[in-house]
Design a protein around this nucleic acid. Structure first.
Lengths: 208, 208
DNA sequence: GTCTATACTGAGATAGAC
DNA sequence: GTCTATCTCAGTATAGAC
């Protein structure tokens, strides 16, 4: 790939993740990358499309990993459905492991959910994977009403996003540099119970 | 209160919530409010301090409501600890009810939480309430290790933030204009199970 | 004490020379 | 492909009118 383009992508990924998309200026990016401002617009078109390129580059391997893991679990369990915990592991573990290998990108993903930029991003880069995951979850929890399942998945994304952002809410209480695999276990335990929680009565009624 | 100041606060609350803080310009605010640009800086000092004022105005009654509800449940249960579901209700219900009365402010809070809470916002406007809530939760779940409790609270804030942002992730699947009290029930059922989930083995070991 | 007018710096974007 | 110059609009600061 083009050298200039790649340098821009690398610096942008880091700065967007560290400071947030809105708080990072293109001029900051080009200064650190040592390229010209117009080069950004030549290669990417706009600041938002640059973000899109950053997300695409990071999301592709992540999504492949998630699908591969899910298929592994499906093969293991077939013809029975995969256990809820394993479905959760297939989506949560690769995501949080990114925190280790590329903390900037992981943080960026956490931020995007909050900055309201995710809806479009989700559609462009994560939809097929998310749909695949929803299907697996539906087979694992056949009695859970459709709508309730979607709500719970939204709750899950929220919890994941918050986790990707780090220990920012309670920096003192969650002191140690928490081993990632431990956080994965904590999150999965929490989510698995949530997904298997009793369905509120009205939600059962709504189901036909 | 001053008429100009109030108009700025109202418009800013709406625009920050609808478009996000970063995507909203002060010039847009003053245009809709029909005031001069410098009036913003006279009354608030800066764009960030304006946001702070907006959050303060909305957070105060919200926090009072949460504390009152929690104390009501505590009085009801005393001397026993409050049930987990009720503690959750005391913090979740007033927050989501804001979606009805002031959707813009609720959306704004969702964004801020997801974004990392604009460093300091949590400390300045929500810390006493959150501490109060953590104490109640600790009494309700005396066997849950400290660190695990904090992680779960962080997961909870993530799920809440995502809920405050609305149905943006699955606009088609979560179609209907969902009655707020129903969403509260869904969220509490999910969270209550999560808080009472088994603690991962290593986390038990860490506890002395 | 309140507000208006205006100027300053830095942002993202674009056209056109090389 | 790359860079200079320039445009518009952002947040901010201040002087001075009421």
């Amino acid at each position: 790939m083009n050298k200039t383009k790649e340098k821009i992508l690398n610096i942008a990924e880091r700065l967007f993740g560290e400071q947030g998309y809105g708080a990072t200026s293109l001029r900051q990016v080009i200064a650190e990358a040592g390229v010209n401002l117009a080069a950004v617009h030549y290669h990417f078109g706009s600041k938002e499309e640059l973000l899109d390129a950053v997300v695409l580059r990071g999301a592709s391997p992540l999504n492949e990993e998630r699908i591969a893991l899910l298929e592994h679990y499906e093969g293991e369990a077939a013809p029975a459905p995969v256990a809820v915990e394993k479905v959760l592991h297939a989506i949560v573990a690769p995501t949080l492991m990114k925190l280790k290998r590329s903390p900037q990108f992981a943080q960026l993903m956490g931020r995007l959910l909050g900055e309201g930029l995710m809806p479009g991003m989700l559609g462009r880069h994560f939809k097929p994977t998310v749909d695949r995951f929803i299907g697996a979850m539906r087979r694992s929890l056949p009695d859970l009403p459709q709508e309730e399942l979607f709500w719970r998945i939204q709750f899950m994304f929220g919890a994941m996003a918050q986790t990707l952002l780090g220990r920012h809410l309670f920096p003192e209480a969650l002191g140690g540099p928490a081993d990632t695999s431990e956080v994965v276990d904590r999150l999965i335990s929490f989510l698995a119970a949530g997904f298997q929680a009793p369905v509120p009565q009205f939600a059962k009624d709504q189901e036909k």
